[in-house]
Write a protein that binds this DNA or RNA. Sequence first.
DNA 1: AGCCAGGGTCTGC
DNA 2: GCAGACCATGGC
Length: 276
Amino acid sequence: MFEYEYKNQNIIIKNVTCFDLKDTLDCGQAFRWKQIQDNTWQGIAHSRVLKISKDSNNIILHSTNIEDFENIWIDYFDLNRDYNSIIKLFMQDPVLKKAIEFSNGIRILNQDPWETLCSFIISQNNNIPRIKGIIERLCVKFGEKIGDDLYSFPSAETIASVSVEDLLEIRCGFRAKYILDAAKKVSTKQINLSELINTDYKTALTQLTTIYGVGEKVANCTLLFGLKHIEAFPVDVWIKKALKTLYNGNLPVNLLDYAGIAQQYIFNYARINKIQ
DNA sequence: AGCCAGGGTCTGC
DNA sequence: GCAGACCATGGC
């Protein structure tokens, strides 16, 4: 589906389609990517710092190696999924057609399950700039230093060992107790996150919502962005407005298999254009 | 200044 | 089952 070469410690992926860096890295699914130059972004995922850039239709992953590319980044950037055929299906729907014409380079990132769960607990009743700030402070305070001013996302085990008072210092407010309960359930494997990838959607959703402070929305974000359940359809205030005004309340049935991907195109379109 | 944000829980009907 | 108060914080 894609070709790549390894040269001077860079991976060059050739002739990539349906992958725009801003669309994908700044559409509210991941919170640790920063644009550092034109067409160049830096982020941290899976305890690794990655610089990624786009040059015409080539994507370049800087200062990495084949092992990390094959074990981590192919999956993270969802490179084995055929977005062209999905977009083809979506374009039959007039609303999605508009959303995709607005930003056709969104891909669903397959993020670390615990980071995804914790990040979307932080996201509740919150705005994206502040979510990023809280997560940054969480990583600086509890993560491991992996470069100059660069910190990994702290493990569930680490967070489970701190107190609510410690967490309040990152100014996450009422979410502190939720983060702590999630960390405890995940670190003790009362909830085995990696198993939920292969658990059916409904069962996985039910398990996630046993965590204090995790409702349907946060659970669906975790399932979609961290546990490979692309049928998950998170409904936040923007999606709610979009469903009401652009559709008549529901997503068309023929799109439900890829509901999560459709959701992300619609979310981005609705939020940036402030659909009421 | 005040409304709102990738919500969820708890209480009271 | 559903409405409404409440929760911390700060972006805009």
